[in-house]
Simulated scan of single mutants.
Amino acid sequence: MSAAEREIIFDTETTGLDPKTGDRMVEIGCIEMVGRVETGRTFHAYFNPDRDMPPEAERVHGLSAAFLATKPRFGEVADELLTFLGDAPLVAHNAGFDFGFLNNELQLIGRDPVSIDRMVDTVAIARKRHPGSKLSLDALCTRYGIDRSHRVKHGALLDAELLAQVYVELNGGRQIGLGLVDSDFTPATTTTTNAPWHRPPSDKPRRDPRPHVASPEELERHSAFIAGIDNAIWSR
């Protein structure tokens, strides 16, 4: 995958853990990145799941059945979502979970599923980069110094924003694309090397480097200054 390719970082919130047992997706948040840089384009939506909200799920994301009852059903915004996703790779944390719910919603409205060939799982990337370490989104934010103080509850768009920062760090940090990546490091989801970075030409006049050795006159003045100090410790 080219380093300049468009990618979508996304997260979902649901009524539970398994769409096969009737759980539904109730929120999705997507962040567009090009060349591992956020473009500012996002997609975010809540969905009416046409079912209750288990208390344990509501404690995680804070979305009540009453709140979601006023939101559109997935089928009403599916075209808009699919247009935003386009054919870009889709990056998620524990991506199999999010893909499972997204494709379940598509199946329920008779639409083709999103190919798992487009799936990029940041848990799998983090496991290779940091074997034996905690791999939750919170743990990775802590590892990379990413501020999550505003994350009181899970939210799809907020978590996607945090994941976008984590994803960049997992692939070499903000130095990616600047030609500063170690020669033995290959970003986990790229198949081509990054183009080298060149400093743009400057129109500013060049100045000769300043000397860093004191002149004889400066040394003489310094000696005279030191001699005028009574009981100087460096003269003992």
Results as ranks from 00 to 15, higher is better:
2 S>H: 01
5 E>N: 06
7 E>W: 03
9 I>T: 04
11 D>P: 01
14 T>S: 05
15 T>Q: 05
16 G>K: 11
18 D>G: 05
19 P>N: 04
22 G>H: 07
25 M>H: 07
25 M>G: 02
26 V>Q: 05
26 V>A: 06
31 I>E: 04
32 E>C: 07
34 V>G: 01
36 R>W: 15
36 R>N: 07
40 G>W: 14
41 R>W: 13
43 F>Y: 15
44 H>D: 06
46 Y>E: 08
46 Y>S: 08
47 F>G: 04
50 D>R: 15
54 P>H: 10
59 R>V: 04
66 A>S: 08
71 K>T: 15
74 F>P: 06
82 L>S: 04
86 G>T: 00
86 G>D: 09
97 F>V: 04
101 F>Y: 11
105 E>M: 05
112 D>F: 00
116 I>P: 02
118 R>F: 04
122 T>S: 12
141 C>Y: 12
143 R>G: 05
145 G>H: 08
148 R>A: 03
148 R>G: 01
148 R>N: 13
150 H>T: 07
155 G>K: 01
162 L>S: 09
174 R>H: 13
177 G>D: 03
180 L>R: 09
186 T>W: 00
186 T>C: 00
190 T>N: 02
190 T>L: 12
192 T>F: 02
192 T>C: 01
193 T>C: 03
194 N>E: 14
195 A>K: 06
198 H>L: 14
201 P>G: 07
208 D>G: 12
214 A>L: 14
216 P>F: 12
218 E>I: 01
218 E>H: 04
219 L>W: 06
222 H>W: 14
224 A>V: 02
227 A>S: 13
232 A>W: 03
